[in-house]
Simulated scan of single mutants.
Amino acid sequence: METLVRRLFKLALFISVFLLSVRYLPPNHEWTDSESRAYWAASDWLGIQDPRDFYFLLWLSVELIVAISAYVVIIKLWRRFRK
């Protein structure tokens, strides 16, 4: 039972960190000409028709990386200060 509670707590912690990163790291909705060309080229190379879809996937990947990094740091600090 204790293991289940720990896993649920860790899951809730990760979800909350992810939602905080989505909330406070908003995507940039205005593209410059060079960014627009880069997104069009990358989406064409990957076979994605709309560059906004590619941008959304890229933005979601960045958010996941930020959330995972923050989660790992929180867990390591928790283990260090618990000793």
Results as ranks from 00 to 15, higher is better:
1 M>E: 15
1 M>V: 08
2 E>R: 03
3 T>G: 04
3 T>A: 05
4 L>Y: 02
4 L>W: 00
5 V>Q: 11
8 L>S: 13
8 L>D: 13
9 F>I: 02
9 F>L: 12
9 F>G: 08
9 F>N: 10
9 F>W: 12
11 L>D: 15
13 L>P: 11
13 L>C: 10
14 F>H: 09
14 F>Y: 14
16 S>T: 02
17 V>Y: 06
18 F>H: 07
18 F>N: 13
19 L>P: 03
19 L>Y: 04
21 S>Q: 11
23 R>T: 15
25 L>V: 15
25 L>Q: 07
28 N>Y: 02
32 T>C: 05
32 T>L: 05
34 S>D: 07
34 S>T: 01
34 S>Q: 03
36 S>D: 04
36 S>C: 02
38 A>N: 01
39 Y>M: 04
40 W>F: 06
40 W>G: 01
41 A>V: 00
41 A>S: 03
43 S>P: 05
44 D>I: 01
45 W>S: 02
49 Q>D: 03
49 Q>I: 14
50 D>L: 04
50 D>E: 12
51 P>T: 02
52 R>A: 13
52 R>L: 08
53 D>H: 07
55 Y>T: 07
57 L>M: 13
63 E>C: 11
64 L>M: 15
64 L>Y: 12
65 I>V: 15
65 I>Y: 09
68 I>T: 10
69 S>K: 11
69 S>E: 08
70 A>S: 08
71 Y>I: 01
72 V>D: 01
73 V>G: 09
76 K>P: 05
76 K>C: 08
78 W>K: 00
81 F>G: 05
82 R>A: 09
83 K>Y: 09
83 K>A: 12
